[in-house]
Write a protein that binds this DNA or RNA. Sequence first.
DNA 1: CTACAACTTAGAGCGCGCTCTAAGTCAAGA
DNA 2: TCTTGACTTAGAGCGCGCTCTAAGTTGTAG
Lengths: 128, 128
Amino acid sequence: MNTQTELLTIQDVAEATGLSVHTLRYYERIGLIHSIGRAQNTHRRYSMDDVGWIEFLKKLRATGMPIHQMLRYAELQRMGDETLPERLEMLKELRRNVEAHMAELQEHLKVIQYKIELYGELLAERTP
Amino acid sequence: MNTQTELLTIQDVAEATGLSVHTLRYYERIGLIHSIGRAQNTHRRYSMDDVGWIEFLKKLRATGMPIHQMLRYAELQRMGDETLPERLEMLKELRRNVEAHMAELQEHLKVIQYKIELYGELLAERTP
DNA sequence: CTACAACTTAGAGCGCGCTCTAAGTCAAGA
DNA sequence: TCTTGACTTAGAGCGCGCTCTAAGTTGTAG
């Protein structure tokens, strides 16, 4: 780990974020991650800001945002403050989607819970 | 079983469940749906029990259970009451996973919420 | 009798999100 | 000097869960 220059190798970032080095390069190639610095030998050098952005990307993915929307968000971010309204709208839509998804999961959980209780009772009858 | 209930065509079931006819046939082919009745012309005829099972499958999918686990569950179901303990364990694992997933979503929602508020404030500054 | 719609099967194709490979560069250590 | 290993790129491959196609059968309407 290169702690003296405060720049991280792709391995460092993979370990720090839980993404594979393959995925990190893939994200950069498609434009999700932008302008990663390079050492003299062309190797990537990530800043802490880069890691913060990657962590944010992880959250977007984990909430179910598709890659093409994340690309749009990343593009807007690079365009600067004029795109704040659109980014805000994207985040609000994401919030709505996540809340709806959680409500659905909650409903399904009830059914699963019911089945678990039912099966538990049936088992208790079978092996008294 | 339900020998007296009316029988549905694959189109009926597609409309009733929201799955496509392609998906219904696919689920049957891989073994998720079993022993669907046939009319004399070989066309599928679904019972209300079948529809109930399909609705349950939909819930399993929506909670993130992968197809191969659903196949295992379907197989166990066909094997009868001796498999109740294993099915119960599968449902308990599913419950754990769903609860963990919901907790994760809840955490991410907080970050999104924070960003939304931050962007809202920045926007208010820019356009007072 | 013909046309058409709705079904059937086996199997190919697809979109997503990675994941891996091949071939090459480079720097450090034995 | 030679080897090792971490990196680089462009591009191929993969697992999942469908989704669609091709070719054929059957029942009903005109």
